[in-house]
Simulated assay, not measured.
Amino acid sequence: MKLTWKQAAAAVAFTAAAVAATGALAQQRMFFGIATGGTGGTYYPLGGMLAQLISNKASVDGKKISATAEAAGASVANAKLLGNKDIESAFVAADILDAAYNGTGQFQGAPIKNLRALGALYPETVQLITRADAGINSVKDLKGKSISSGSPGSGQYQLLTDLLKVYGMSRADIKEDLSSFTQAVDKIKDGNLHATLITAGVPTAAVTDFAQSHALKVIPLSGAEIAELQKQQPFYANVKLAANTYKGQTEAVDTLAVMAVWTAHDAVPENVAYEVTKALYENVSIMGQVHVQGKNISLQTATSVGNAPIHPGALKYFKEKGIVK
């Protein structure tokens, strides 16, 4: 159909108006990213709910903050993303945050000094998972066996190093696999992997799925060797994995836990950091709706972030609430 000049002019005017409207909408929004972890862990669902919370509750100077959660490589990779300012915020385990800021462990000689904590989230439980029929009853039994320390960039890599060391072993004594939580448990199901080390909020989706079809065993982490590890890794606390966290796991298991910390970089504006921090800690009940660990996010523990500095925007909010002087 051939358009008259009036129809063509009207079409051009409509298109221009639509483009202008889209541009105006973009100007009314401020974008804020949250790097999480793999889809089989706890970072991902909680990050998604946090992004939704921020998008619904937070604004700066009349602009809505539009937040998105992104699947990522977890703690080590997330710290590097922040160091490069490739994303505004990320979930990072407290031990990795400390190592990254101070240039130790996997960050030896390369500290990331622009890291700033927004607030502590919840305890991540260390879970050494294997099949019940694998003949593995302790860390010592891993010698000569295959084990996943998580996808490249996860915090489990350093933890496995330290675990092996206190038990008189090194990586040369095992067959290491670098699979995500979901990939690792699938390999264990198929008999292609003996064990996996998972540090995440419980229940962890990948482990729950595994327990539905296979008898699992959670290897205890306690005793003199673990006490020695805690001297090197003071961010790890003794905890018990409650009985029946997973199908078939009828007894509580001694293990470790480390705090997850929501972290930003120092170029995130103070008013933005203030608003997103406020959005989280004034709506923590909503976080518990997507995962039980969301119920453990609390203003009372928000400043338990280790030695990395707290972002000035988050600090302003904590001072207003009276938890920091």
Rank of each mutant, 00 (worst) to 15 (best):
N271C: 06
V239W: 07
L229V: 08
K189L: 11
P312I: 09
L3S: 00
N56T: 08
D177P: 00
A74Y: 05
L193Y: 12
K295H: 11
A67N: 04
S179E: 06
F181T: 07
L53F: 10
L216Y: 10
A117W: 03
S89I: 10
F235P: 00
H291L: 09
V92F: 06
E228W: 06
V92W: 08
T36C: 14
A71V: 07
F318M: 11
Q249K: 08
V253M: 07
V239M: 12
V324Y: 04
A26G: 03
G40W: 08
A172Q: 13
K231Y: 10
A8R: 00
W262Q: 03
N56M: 06
V12R: 05
Q158K: 12
V324Q: 12
I112L: 13
P203G: 11
Q249Y: 05
D61Q: 03
T130V: 09
I112H: 09
A279G: 03
H214Q: 14
Q212M: 15
P123I: 08
V60Q: 00
A99I: 03
T199Y: 03
G288I: 14
G248L: 11
S55P: 08
A211K: 10
G155R: 01
G150H: 01
A11K: 00
F181C: 05
K64L: 00
T130Q: 06
G144S: 08
L121Q: 12
K295S: 09
V202A: 15
G248P: 14
Y43G: 07
T303W: 10
A237L: 08
D95A: 04
G288H: 14
G223L: 08
K6Y: 00
Y317F: 14
A18K: 02
G37V: 02
F210A: 04
G37R: 04
G294F: 05
H194C: 03
A257G: 04
F181H: 14
T22W: 01
M30D: 02
D98G: 01
L229M: 14
D177K: 12
G73F: 13
T22D: 09
K85T: 07
A205T: 14
V12L: 12
V202P: 11
F14G: 02
P312K: 06
K325N: 10
G201W: 04
V202D: 14
A200N: 14
D133T: 12
T245R: 09
Q230F: 04
A257H: 04
I323Q: 05
D86P: 02
R131F: 10
K140Q: 15
Y44K: 06
T42M: 07
T255A: 05
L115R: 01
Q127D: 08
T303G: 07
A206E: 09
V292P: 07
V276F: 03
L53T: 11
Y43P: 03
K165A: 15
P111N: 03
F107V: 09
T208Q: 14
I34Y: 02
K231V: 15
E275Q: 13
L118N: 06
Q28P: 00
F318S: 06
E228P: 11
T250D: 15
G105A: 15
G135A: 01
E228V: 15
L81I: 10
T39S: 10
P203M: 11
Y122P: 07
S66K: 00
L142K: 13
G191D: 02
A267D: 12
N307D: 11
D190N: 14
A67E: 02
W262F: 11
Q183T: 03
L159A: 05
T301L: 12
L193H: 07
Y246L: 08
F318E: 01
F32Y: 13
Q249T: 14
L82K: 10
